[in-house]
Design a protein around this nucleic acid. Sequence first.
RNA 1: CAGGCAGAACGGGAAAUCGCAGCAGGCAACCCCUGCUGAGGAAAGUCCGCCCUCCACAGGGCGCGGUGCUGGCUAACUGCCAGGCAGGGCAACCUGACGGCAUAGUGCAACAGAGAGGUGUAUUGCGUCGUGCAAGCGGCGUGAGGGUGAAACGGCGGUGUAAGAGACCACCAGUGCGUUUGGUGACAAGCGCAGCUAGGCAAACCCCACCGGGAGCAAGGUCAAGCAGGCGCACGGGGGCUGCCCGUCCCAUAGAAAGCGCCGGGUCGUCCGCACGAGGUGUCCGGUAACGGGCAUCCCAGAGAGAUGAUUUCCACUCCGGGCAACCGGAGAACAAAAGGCGGCUUAUAGGUUUGGCUGGAUA
RNA 2: GGCCCUAUCGUCUAGAGGCCUAGGACGUCACCCUUUCAAGGUGAAGACUCGGGUUCGAAUCCCGAUAGGGUCA
Length: 115
Amino acid sequence: MQRRLRLTRSEDFERLRQTGQSRSHAWLVMNVAANQLPHNRYGIITTKKLGKAVQRNRIKRQLREVLRLLHSQLRQGYDVVIIARPGIMGQPFHAIQRIVEQACHKLMLLSGDGG
RNA sequence: CAGGCAGAACGGGAAAUCGCAGCAGGCAACCCCUGCUGAGGAAAGUCCGCCCUCCACAGGGCGCGGUGCUGGCUAACUGCCAGGCAGGGCAACCUGACGGCAUAGUGCAACAGAGAGGUGUAUUGCGUCGUGCAAGCGGCGUGAGGGUGAAACGGCGGUGUAAGAGACCACCAGUGCGUUUGGUGACAAGCGCAGCUAGGCAAACCCCACCGGGAGCAAGGUCAAGCAGGCGCACGGGGGCUGCCCGUCCCAUAGAAAGCGCCGGGUCGUCCGCACGAGGUGUCCGGUAACGGGCAUCCCAGAGAGAUGAUUUCCACUCCGGGCAACCGGAGAACAAAAGGCGGCUUAUAGGUUUGGCUGGAUA
RNA sequence: GGCCCUAUCGUCUAGAGGCCUAGGACGUCACCCUUUCAAGGUGAAGACUCGGGUUCGAAUCCCGAUAGGGUCA
């Protein structure tokens, strides 16, 4: 994932927490808010509840891969934050991919969703 | 063959496509393209030690902290190797903060028990004397036996005695001093003398010996951006070794600037440190070994919210189901991921591989 | 990433080698009191984070692990 597509600053995370739309699932929580940029930015949060460094890194990389594959299908101009929950531990990649796609669909982020 | 002991190396392998990070080249730079490289034995815990950096260079005393058998290795260590001693195991082997409570002083030992450290004590007992018809009571001697306790002032046999006792004797254990031999040494073995047993706890204070200045790469420097200043600093002030004292050094010296300290405000960016090192591999030499030296060869992660992910094929391993079998189908595969580097320790770890001892059984 | 601190009933705490079979307060439960509830009284249950070591004896001393928390740009 290119560096300009990453969301890093804590003010941005706090802004999404305050003003963004959210969608929760047993495995993850997704926050979305519009930014003033021509592209999307993505942030991933893996807390210590998920386990030690090996587990947290693996979840983060899998979610990043999902977003990379999904990026071209999404409407641009939004900041997206995914917070992983402990239920995601040990789940196969395709199942995680499906859950993220569903969350994007419900938040009207897919290009075919209109509006 | 079974069980057990001590090590060593490994931690699935071979590929394809997409994606990520670094380096080199193609360009003078970005994008882009090509090639190469890209987590571990513990990267972990941060328990020790060192390199490195800063503190205006770090000296002395007190205090504080650490270490503690001997010899060696190392940059250094609470590490490693070899040895001694003590304890455990039939053995291979394992474990040990292993200086000093007879080189000083202080302290502690609940409960039980007569008595818990004072050449101290006397409940029962043994003996004897007095008294009493007797049971018993009282005095004296004794410390062997019983009993209490984690621990009770040598063991066993004899002499001795009213009863007894290292009171005395033989042997043994233990202690101190002297001495001989072996060893660099810790220590071991022996001889002689003394004396007659002189307890435990220093991971209790402490004493002795040795070591330690403090902080840490968010150290520290550099460039850029941004902001708002205020207070304190002479009969001596502020600061540097942190707890104290001395010594010493730095700054200011009365107008301001600069400096130091405290409070407040701003920024949350770039680059360096930051990847050739006490480096890896192979081989030879010295050494019992840890390790040291020579030669050859290799370059082997370097991010900044933090690079290893996804999909697929074949082979290897384990388990489950089916099958006589070949095989077929399915599932699984530990602990855990660099963040300046290095040497150790400790802790976690599925699984198989391999080397050398030991014990028992069987066979020859 | 570095440097520190702490851990005792459900919660807050006392404890400094034996008096600890661990004390107190709030909370919980039972009983008494009251027409009932509250308050009050009486009583009960309930803990030394874990594993080794030193010691006759450890919540306490030493070592290791675990879990929380703080601080530094």
